[in-house]
Amino acid sequence: MKKITKILSLATMLMMAATGVAMATPSTQIWIPSTDVQGYKTLHLGIDNYFRASGVAKSAPSPSSTRDANVMDIGLTAGILPFEKLQMEIGVDYLVIANNPNDNHPLMGNFKIGTPEESLFKLSPALAFGMYNIGPTQPAGNAPFVVSGQNIIYGLAAKTIPAIGPVPSLGRVSAGYYRGSKNSFQDTRLDPSKSQNQGVLLSWDRTMSEISDKLWMAVDYMGGNNVMGAVNVGVSWAFAKNVSVIFGYDIYKEKALAGNNTFTTQLDINFP
């Protein structure tokens, strides 16, 4: 028990150190968090780019008259618990939205605690709880055009649909809910007293082993009529045991807030 307490205390201190300096993404599907957690002593490097599929969305915030801003996110996430049935990761990301003068805190933190499937009892789902985009709360006047200080807290459950006889597994389904900072999800152009700072999280993912064990597909959804609400589809190819790339497309629910849809490439590298 003392060892567990010491590890959790160290994790908390590291997380606070990361968040004290100021979006960070935990282990994800394409857009939303997943119930996956980085293994103990695994360091994960993620380099995510979001390229606009077209020019300026109608009424979208953009300093340019030709195209909404692209986004780049570079992040490190580490697994810190040496237990099979209780896992934890912490991370920090540097996220840059091109030509955005309102976002003064590009460095942000995240953490996640989770249990894998069947760790609690037979047929139990995987469970995860965490926070991301942790950082100083932004002034309400900056919202909704910044991600720093969204301070999104979430919970998720996931279950793999088992194979039945000759019918292969249909993949894994996940469902959960999130809530974020009211300031960061306000649309001050409409009504400063209202915010859309919560919604459902849904996803489906599957390794396409009929084609190749290196091929993975996913669809996910983040609810809420806010800057983060989106439907996302993508495929991933593992070029090596520890290196994979996701190629995806992001459809934003509120283009006036989030800008036009984006193509995304997400390079993931695990060490060791």
Rank of each mutant, 00 (worst) to 15 (best):
V231N: 15
V96R: 14
E117N: 00
G91D: 05
N133E: 15
Q87D: 09
L8C: 07
N151C: 04
L120P: 05
F129R: 05
I74F: 10
K58R: 13
V233E: 04
K3I: 14
A140D: 14
R206L: 15
Q150Y: 01
H44D: 13
M88I: 08
I251S: 13
F121W: 15
M108C: 14
A143S: 06
T207P: 05
A140W: 11
P26R: 00
Y178A: 04
S174K: 00
A143Y: 01
T42F: 01
L81E: 03
A175S: 08
I97P: 00
Y94R: 13
K41M: 12
P168W: 11
K241I: 01
L215F: 01
G229D: 03
I90P: 00
A98W: 06
S236W: 02
A158M: 00
T207W: 07
Y132L: 11
S174M: 10
S181C: 06
A18W: 15
L45I: 07
E118C: 09
L8F: 11
F239D: 05
V231T: 15
S9V: 14
Y177M: 09
S27N: 06
A238K: 13
V96P: 11
F129S: 04
Q38N: 14
P139F: 05
P144S: 02
V147F: 12
Y40H: 12
P272Y: 13
N226G: 06
E84A: 13
K159I: 06
N232M: 02
L76H: 04
K122V: 09
T5P: 10
L156I: 09
T12E: 15
D220T: 03
G171T: 01
H44F: 07
Q150H: 10
M72A: 13
M1N: 12
A57R: 02
A128Y: 06
V231P: 08
G135F: 06
N133T: 11
A24N: 08
S244G: 11
G141D: 13
T28L: 10
A230E: 06
G114I: 02
S124R: 07
Y221K: 02
S54H: 14
I134E: 10
R52S: 15
N99V: 02
T77C: 10
P192I: 09
N49H: 12
S236N: 08
S148C: 04
A98Q: 14
S148E: 04
I153K: 13
T77P: 07
S59V: 00
V245T: 08
K58I: 03
K253P: 06
M88D: 05
G224Y: 03
V235S: 12
Y177C: 09
I47V: 13
K58T: 12
E210Y: 12
Q38P: 03
N261F: 00
G234S: 06
K112R: 10
F145M: 08
G114N: 04
E117K: 03
G39Y: 06
S59E: 05
P33M: 07
D68A: 01
F271P: 12
Y221N: 01
W216Q: 14
S203W: 13
D250R: 15
V235A: 14
V147W: 06
Y132Q: 07
E84D: 14
A240P: 00
I97M: 03
M131Y: 09
M13D: 12
T188R: 07
S62D: 05
I74E: 07
G224Q: 02
I32H: 01
A17C: 13
G130D: 03
S212N: 05
V167N: 11
M88H: 04
G248Y: 05
F111L: 11
T77E: 10
A17H: 09
Y221V: 00
K112W: 01
S236R: 12
